[in-house]
Design a protein around this nucleic acid. Structure first.
Lengths: 339, 339
DNA sequence: ATTGGCAGTCTGATCGAGCGAGTGCCAGCA
DNA sequence: TGCTGGCACTCGCTCGATCAGACTGCCAAT
């Protein structure tokens, strides 16, 4: 068990190390912080903290650096999560309120978050749980090629190109469009597969194969609504903080392009009672073992939600980043959630 | 004027320097290439090349390195643009033929290009010159909030959220939707502004303000079709080649996120008779002064085109990258251009 | 025009010394 | 029991010097 004061020493170490990127020694602590004790006493506490593996010395007799575990304790104990300043809140609303559409909301959010935190920002597109079909549009691209456009209640739009087994004239496309919308408009997405299956029966036999191809495309559209997407901004910040990575940032950037890794990460992270969650260092995948991820969730409408957050070196300003992520998530919820 | 042989010496220097990242000296050249002359002769040629500013010595008495101008001459003289191997062509078609929709084509193209070249790949979305309106859909988001979805012939889809000055009931939205489509479906985009302007007259006076807001959104949609977008992949490659940048890669990554810089660059680059264009080093903007960009154009349908390409350090394998960019551009043209 | 030879120059690696920051431990004190 | 000052010791880092190696530029000869 570590003493109360030892925890404050940990906090001081994290604080100074985040600020300076240099291992911090006992003397530096008594100089910069108002502990009423001597350096020797601090050293004793540091020995304790080292025993608990909350801090480590890069080399024998150098200052100490927080370990992943040390950051974890710091975050759990001291994340005061002070609200952002009025100016910052102002900036958030001023910037996001200009959004013209859904894509734009996410594009702006991710840029905003990256500027507020100086880290890589990530925003997950919402999975629209029980959205309904709004409209289906068919656009002929060539004699045998058709684009299907699938629009849902929540405003999400999906497009897809299919190859038909016959030449589709305008009349057939028109009939198809009318019957598709008659059968599907207003249905919840989960109903689409069965409706699609029975669709071919309503057409002349020689057309059924073509209708089957379209029905298959519809399944793809429904799937696409399950599949998550991610937008990202501020990758340049990773390069700026390259010094914080013992290895190269290369695997980190690769993981960022491999969205699947991040989507998995996001899905694993449960938002805690404060509305934000962190994963630090080795709590993450191998490729992200030198990074920390701060996430929060936002809601779209009543029953759909997704996550957003930032990623950076474990040596990051957790207080600021957690506050920013939480504030932005709340603002996005408010922006998209009013129904 | 430099002699024929001197140009071959330049080629050898570019070749070796690209391969090794080390300044290349006269001895290395006679060792690795079959010139029938001695190192001293090569040195004379190198002195000439240096005078012409095609190569430079990083330090007195070190090997030589190509200058921007040297790369330029190399590209203009020696870009043999050999076709890709059968296996590579096979890989291109196998990968791109799986695309399910327009977005997917671009997403796959950009990933493919980045893997073929080991550079950052960029694909510009096509500007659809004289596309026609296919369908307009209105999706109520809340009592006073409406999403407009704008679909064109070419299959591009655009969405936008607008705030209405009144509460829109289902009947009004239905009327609006019907009249919009009646007036606009089938029109070329350039016609939309005037039609939109006269739209309000067809509604009851108390609705005209709301219709005006919608009309304004339509202008935005038309604009969006002029506005270009860019997708990118392989940013990690820049970090891998970080050693090639005298400064930091940070400004380069920033320029990549500022798509406006790149769009400007793309628009300035005219495709030459071989189907590819390069911009090398200081021919670019300040932020990209240590990079080279290789682009080509692709066509969508009959009258719409856009560019794609790769970006990397000036020390890149121009032959391979130019061949890859050209091959991919041609393949994408074929994929999207069949009418 | 080309060549071999040679002197000169600059880089990069290696080594050792000295400095300074910081620790761990110990004995003394409240 | 907890805190403190003192002290010896350990490393990592920086600086300067040295040295080997790689090239160049020039020159005289072919």
């Amino acid at each position: 068990m570590v003493s109360e004061r030892a925890l404050h020493v940990l906090r001081a170490i994290v604080h100074d190390y985040v600020a300076s990127r240099e291992p911090v020694g006992s003397k530096a602590i008594v100089d910069r912080h108002q502990f009423g004790v001597s350096a020797a006493t601090i050293r004793n506490d540091m020995a304790l903290l080292e025993e608990e593996e909350l801090i480590a010395a890069p080399h024998t007799s150098s200052g100490r650096v927080p370990t992943d575990k040390g950051y974890r304790v710091f975050v759990d104990q001291f994340a005061d999560l002070r609200p952002l300043s009025a100016a910052q809140r102002q900036a958030i609303s001023a910037f996001l309120d200009q959004s013209v559409d859904l894509d734009d909301v996410f594009a702006r959010t991710v840029r905003l978050l990256s500027h507020l935190t100086n880290q890589v920002a990530l925003v997950q597109y919402p999975t629209l749980g029980n959205a309904r079909v709004r409209h289906i549009e068919l656009v002929p691209m060539s004699a045998t090629r058709l684009m299907t456009v699938f629009i849902t209640d929540g405003g999400r739009v999906d497009q897809r190109i299919i190859e038909l087994p016959l030449e589709a004239d305008e009349a057939f496309v028109g009939e198809l469009r009318a019957k598709l919308n008659a059968a599907l408009a207003g249905q919840v997405l989960s109903e689409v597969p069965q409706v699609a299956a029975s669709l071919a029966d309503r057409f002349a036999p020689d057309r059924r194969e073509a209708v089957g191809v379209v029905a298959e495309a519809l399944l793809g559209h429904v799937d696409a609504h399950r599949t998550d997407r991610l937008v990202m901004a501020g990758a340049a910040n990773l390069v700026r903080t390259e010094g914080d990575f013992a290895g190269s940032v290369y695997p980190v950037l690769e993981a960022l392009e491999e969205q699947v890794t991040l989507l998995k990460l996001f899905s694993e992270m449960q938002v805690d009672e404060h509305g934000v969650t962190t994963r630090i260092g080795r709590e993450n995948d191998e490729a992200l073992k030198e990074t920390a991820v701060v996430t929060s969730a936002y809601r779209v409408g009543t029953d759909s939600s997704a996550k957003l957050g930032v990623l950076g070196p474990t040596r990051m300003d957790y207080s600021n980043n957690m506050a920013a992520v939480r504030a932005v998530a709340r603002y996005v919820s408010r922006l998209l959630g009013e129904e």
